[in-house]
Amino acid sequence: MMIPLEHYLIFAATLFAIGIYGALIRRNIIGILISIELMLNAVNVNLVAFSRSTSLAPETGQVFAIFVIAVAAASVAVGLAIVIALYRVRKSVYTEDIHLLKW
């Protein structure tokens, strides 16, 4: 029994919306990072779902997903490093305290 594509898409959209919401609302940078991960994973769900429902070879979408996971891991590693570095300097992980790139 096949779960229809729409379900996946609705799930992914919900996941993405949660991610966007978190990225825009959270004050803690770590929270923002987690939210970004959520959005990436929504994309991953989409990729795998589309790959499964189309006539292409099923691996196509899955390879993409694995790529995204790898890149996301890397970016999180860098992001967390920046956060730690920032914390050491400014003793804070809240975005309103870190507006160095202002005019």
Binding site: I20, A23, L24, I25, I32, T95, E96, I98, H99, L100, L101, K102, W103
Partner: peptide, 17 residues
């Protein structure tokens, strides 16, 4: 015009969104 640049990432992100 430089007032637009707030330095808060989330502002930028909101605008992008």
């Amino acid at each position: 015009t430089r007032r637009l640049q707030t330095g808060l990432i989330q502002n930028y992100l909101l605008i992008i969104f």
